[in-house]
Amino acid sequence: MNCSDLRSRISELLDKETSYTDSQKFHLHLETCGDCSELYAGLEKTRITLASEPSKSLSADFMARLQERIRMDLAKGPTLWQQLTTPKVAGLSPMSLSGLVAATLSAIIIGVSLFQSEAAPLVAPPQSATGQLVPGGSAAQPASPLSRPVAIQSAVPDSLKQKSDSTRRDFSRQIKLVNRDRP
């Protein structure tokens, strides 16, 4: 046992967490080493001081002020996070609430993506063997896995269908213009 060994484990000795054999070795070293003995005495003194109560204490109106702050906090009402994490909100657990939120978000995302697919088709415009774009040639192409199901198309309001048709017509007109300008 040397000074370095003792210093690396001196807390064990202070906390009385050493085995009997190790404790004997530590104490033997402390009896022969003035520096380590002084260090150990200092550590013990510091620990006793730290464990003693601080000279200052809580003010007399601490409880009254705490109750007042809680009352004010309650008057403000729960935050959104507290509403979501408190089990008794609308009789639902946080898990069911989070499930509900997830389902709502999914429905919104699906709805938005369907609307966007109506306005701008997901499949690229068909091309001829020469690489030229074929205007209005979608009917000749095989069904794509990304094509929208018929049931969803029929559920789209007429106003949106008209908008979609006019978008396609604009698109066809632009392609014709591009082809006409090519050499």
Binding site: S11, G42, L43
Partner: peptide, 16 residues
């Protein structure tokens, strides 16, 4: 455990 040990030793250095 090692952090407590090092912290206690550092504190003794400051006090010294």
């Amino acid at each position: 455990k090692s952090r407590v040990n090092r912290a206690r030793l550092r504190m003794q250095e400051i006090l010294k």
